[in-house]
Design a protein around this nucleic acid. Sequence first.
DNA 1: GCACCCGATGTCAGAGACTGTCATCAACTA
DNA 2: TAGTTGATGACAGTCTCTGACATCGGGTGC
Lengths: 187, 187
Amino acid sequence: MSRWEPNAPARLAQAAMELFAEAGYEETTVARIAERAGLTERTFFRHFADKREVLFAGSSELEALFVDTVAAAPESAGPMQAVAAALEQASGWFVDRRTFARARQAVISSHSALTERELTKMARLATALARALRERGVEEPAASLTAEAGVAVFRVAFERWTAPREKRPLGEIITEALGELRTITSE
Amino acid sequence: MSRWEPNAPARLAQAAMELFAEAGYEETTVARIAERAGLTERTFFRHFADKREVLFAGSSELEALFVDTVAAAPESAGPMQAVAAALEQASGWFVDRRTFARARQAVISSHSALTERELTKMARLATALARALRERGVEEPAASLTAEAGVAVFRVAFERWTAPREKRPLGEIITEALGELRTITSE
DNA sequence: GCACCCGATGTCAGAGACTGTCATCAACTA
DNA sequence: TAGTTGATGACAGTCTCTGACATCGGGTGC
């Protein structure tokens, strides 16, 4: 038997989500989060670079999914088609996660510091996508623009998907948004 | 004669730029910035919400320029044309500011906390643009998508414009990027 | 000209995020 | 059995940011 309870990062992440939802982000101290997880403040900072980061542990997983899908797209696919394929994959990933996603988005929207961190994650995603496109032979600035536009579509669609009375699946909203983007830019 | 030296915010902003460039963002304390400006730390926080904000004082001015230009575009102009007009205006605003812009971008790129704040400013800009478009009668999600795509073009173009050996004017780079965006999305 | 208020700043104390450093101790390894 | 490793605890310290109250030159009403 191990000396400590396993999964310290996951326990910290769950404690943080609960406390942020119960009492608010500002009002929750890191010491309090660590206490609920049965750890100390110092250990929190060994697992997460800062207080905000605890809400974004899964984002690298999503990034990998995007990148891998772009890399795996058929050679014949254009850059936007490759990105569209990645958006499709992402919508699959989020199926069955809508309730959690809504709760998490509510917490993030409640404080600008968290919104700010989410923007950083989206920017990371765009950078990673651009690199994946360049590795497919797409030149700059097309690679960066496609990546940025793709992430913009994802962000707008995701926001609608987590809106209160929205029922449609994410994939459908993304497809619609991609169509809108095409209409807009052809004007 | 006034009781204090005038332009406290401007003095703080200049002191901050100098110190960040000389010693680095992390290494520079707010107390040190205030000292160079002949003020106290407490006064710094009366003028700027946090340490990062001191580098982004001018961003609301740029935002207003964007919004006003979109609002002033001819009724016949489509959403992307209105945003393109705003991008044109912005390139005019930055003429004669290239050296300063390069120095500022160098500081911002040097620390993730500053990059993060810049992303927030860009997101604000996109939100403001989307609102301006809706006031022109553009529906969602077209308004948000056009705004996001426009800001993506601006960001990509601005980054190229401040790159080391780049000589072309911002307007030219923006026009090129807009063309690229059209090509990409029509695939 | 005088009493009064206003607004920008200073002073001080304190909470909370984050870091460096060293100690602890179960599990593993030679 | 002795030594090493790796996750954690303990503790002190720095820095960001906030609240509360004091200061005082300049303008305002009279």
